Simulated scan of single mutants.
Amino acid sequence: MLDLDFSARIRALRTTFDDIAAVLDLPRLESEIADLETQASAPDLWDDPDAAQRVTSGLSHRQARLRRVRGVEQRLDDLEVLVELATEAEDADAAAEAATELADLEKTVQDLEVQTMLSGEYDERAAVVTIRSGAGGDDATDFAEMLLRMYLRWAEKQGYTSKVLDTSYAEGAGIKSATFEIDAPYAFGTLSVEAGTHRLARISPFGSADKRQTSFAGVEVIPLLEEATEVDVPETDLRIDVYRSSGPGGQSVNTTDSAVRITHLPTGLVVSMQNEKSQIQNRAAAMRVLQTRLLLLQREEEAAKKKELAGSITASWGDQIRSYFLYGQQLVKDLRTGHESTQPDSVFDGEIDGFIAAGIKWRSLEQASAES
């Protein structure tokens, strides 16, 4: 006789799912979708392209989120039926299918539960990620390129749309820096826990002495904000340089000066874009990212003033967040959460969900502790 006593696990899943659905407020989500659908069907929608983009993007993101939640709900219903049929028919194949589906649903619901912790002001936005090589020579620039591939592979496995906006190649191996966008619901809230300094320790493939080399790379994550256009940036505060986009080894990608570099003189912030063939498009994209950074800088300064008035809060992220060991023990370890993996190859191939989930939970606990 088959032993299919999954009832306790399924009940636990149901309870967790019901809590998630309550937090997500599905009736409100459905109401927002209906309102956005009405706006999207307006004949004059594209008279204002920026507003139209906000409407269509907001609608797409909310529809995707609702589909995911409703899909999990349907899978839970189907699982209960499958377990019942397998038990009645004593069908070993159906029982194995039910066990596999239950384990997969437990992971899916856990991922949904983590997403409910993303309640920050900008968490539901798309993300713009910049990776910069740090100390370590060729190893550091190679490490920066490894991180770039890691995040793009993660986005690909999630089914998210990613777009590389700018890449600065190193003279030797790897890249000096790269900026890319991930357009997905809660991309910023999800990836913001990856911001900080990443450290790589390995036997350098670029040296002849077979010595251990430590190198660093910085990851910056900012939300993509429509409201950033409200930031007033006088032309006199900008230095705008144009140049030809280039690939590895200096090979020309364009034959015209379409790449754009904008420097904000008062702050020293620099944004480069070379993904588009048009100089106008690259300039618009660079301005959008620059305005977003200026808006966040302004709000950080305001928050710092409030923090100074309110007194110090001990909870903080710190700078170095994760170490990657590619020699001896073969380990990737997050220094904040303690989460680790003994499969660094899988991590660099985009298997970072465990690190992200642990980071979101850690941040949620730190914030709760600070507020109390």
Rank of each mutant, 00 (worst) to 15 (best):
K333H: 09
Q343C: 03
Q329N: 15
E351I: 03
L290P: 03
S323K: 02
G318C: 01
A310Y: 13
S341Q: 02
E301C: 11
L335K: 02
Q298S: 10
L294H: 04
D319Q: 07
Q298T: 10
A315N: 13
A315W: 10
S316D: 15
D334G: 04
T314M: 12
L309G: 04
A315R: 14
T314Q: 12
Y327Q: 06
T314S: 12
G311N: 08
E308L: 09
D334I: 02
Q298I: 08
Q343I: 03
L294I: 04
L309Y: 00
L331Y: 09
D349Q: 15
T314N: 10
G338L: 06
R336T: 06
H339G: 13
G311C: 05
D349Y: 14
F348Q: 07
L290T: 01
S341M: 01
V332T: 04
L335N: 06
G350T: 11
L326Y: 05
V289S: 02
S312H: 00
Q343G: 05
Q320N: 12
H339Y: 15
Q329T: 14
L297T: 00
W317D: 14
Q329E: 15
R322T: 11
P344C: 08
S341G: 05
R293Q: 08
E301A: 12
L295M: 12
G338H: 07
S323F: 03
